[in-house]
Write a protein that binds this DNA or RNA. Sequence first.
DNA 1: GTATAAGCCTGACTAAAGTCAGGTATATGA
DNA 2: TCATATACCTGACTTTAGTCAGGCTTATAC
Lengths: 297, 297
Amino acid sequence: MSSEFIATVRRFNRTVTQRVGALDDQYMSRDRPLAQARLLWEIGPGGTEVASLRARLGLDSGYLSRLLRTLESDGLVTVGPAGQAGGDGRVRVAALTEAGRAEWAELDERSDELARSILEPLSGQRRERLVAAMAEVERLLVSSMVVIEPCSPGDPRARAAVRAYAREIAQRFDDGFDPALSRPVRDEDLVPPAGLFLLATLNGEPVGCGAIKLHAGAPAEIKRVWVSDGVRGLGIGRRLLDQLEGHAAEGGWTAVRLDTNRNLTEAIAMYRAAGYREIEPYNTERYAHHWFEKRLR
Amino acid sequence: MSSEFIATVRRFNRTVTQRVGALDDQYMSRDRPLAQARLLWEIGPGGTEVASLRARLGLDSGYLSRLLRTLESDGLVTVGPAGQAGGDGRVRVAALTEAGRAEWAELDERSDELARSILEPLSGQRRERLVAAMAEVERLLVSSMVVIEPCSPGDPRARAAVRAYAREIAQRFDDGFDPALSRPVRDEDLVPPAGLFLLATLNGEPVGCGAIKLHAGAPAEIKRVWVSDGVRGLGIGRRLLDQLEGHAAEGGWTAVRLDTNRNLTEAIAMYRAAGYREIEPYNTERYAHHWFEKRLR
DNA sequence: GTATAAGCCTGACTAAAGTCAGGTATATGA
DNA sequence: TCATATACCTGACTTTAGTCAGGCTTATAC
């Protein structure tokens, strides 16, 4: 990687942590410890499950409990059982009280202030350029924060991703989607050595997936490629494809193929851009209109 | 200011502090407390005055002393009197030992690593876009960190700025610059109500200046507009001009003028862009080739 | 039903970060 | 020369952040 690039990123890191990072802490913690302020902020007006707070802030379970007790005794927060009847009885939800919402609004206001203090000194034109560049950096940073890892298809996060995938195609296919009418995919076919399931996560939340079946004596088959709405257009789909193809190539396969629906236009565009060529149908998938193949070097 | 802009800046702040800020801390403090690592880093291979460290890191004097003692007893740093003979005998300089330099290099390497970890997951094209956007953000953030304030012309930082100004024009004028041959500017003419001296600083370091003399019964006169090399092109000159003009306008002046040398082409371009029109010479300044005037609203 | 795991909690602890009140030596202005 | 300020230091202290072991309750797999 070019040292020019590295140098630019380092300069960026330094300037930004100085200007934004340090000030953010300052703004946040004007009258209570930083950890408490952050927690209060993260709970938000809508309330949040304790487990989710732990994950997002990366805190020790005991430490978080103690922080919650402090906020509770300050009358800012109530921690109670999860609202949903029939839900997991172990899960607890932190919610803001009236006073807590007021303090949250104060933090929100400070966050606005910080943003204003950054834009204020700039002339109109420069201001627009800064905002545009920030939007670009933000988007690309998010994309670089997405982690793609092999995952058991039985993992709850994998299940959630596949459910989201099914929900989406049900919405987009002309005639909905009934799994019973589609060619089934069994979990065990997506576990090495038979295949592989990849999960893409952003801060632990599933935002994409993709799987490959390594058919004996036939091209490998790519299935269930899905990228969540919020992170589309960031190249996640392409990264999933690349890794799946890499896995097949490592196993000695020389071609991969897949079928897809005519309504999934971005996906089709992506397959073409990634080097897939349209081929004759190789199966009788009820919902497929296009079949693609890519030869691996 | 548009709430759209604010929202973008806030999203940026959040993503970046998460991705860069948090990781930066982690990378930095892998085997010693964050404060120590930061300090070691800030001292750098060249050594740094203790006062400057205090300012840059914003630390309590006692706390900093203690941190330095720790690094000293770990054999990483030596703190001694400032090198320069005849200098201020109270000032002390922290310098890295051999071991300190090694550890500094390690931190430097980690900083590279962090940068790489950000770029790594991106495809070539996205990588380029990210780096370009980061460079833009960095530049504009720096410009928004520059603080412009009235300052006594006798202030050491003001003196330093004026010295830098003189050094630069001496270099750029065809026949050098001898203050004795130029029309003199007395400090007291740049102090309210006779005039005003503005100092532009970045993290406390002077990076620009500008002054105005409010002549009784004549247009106000702008003098000593200088912007340091490193922050040129960020609109600092324009901000200095705006504030000086504003000061004159508040005092009831309806026009400002200035003289300049033909070699200062960017300055001349800036004056024109800011609404200055070239006029006949209004003085006999030895080094001037152009005279400009701007009418205030 | 039983074993095991997950989610949250408390108690006991440590390390890091930061504050404050002086103290010493050097510099500076009258 | 003397009063005052500055740069750095030490000692004594508090707060914040974080860790770890274990406990209780609810869920899940067999």
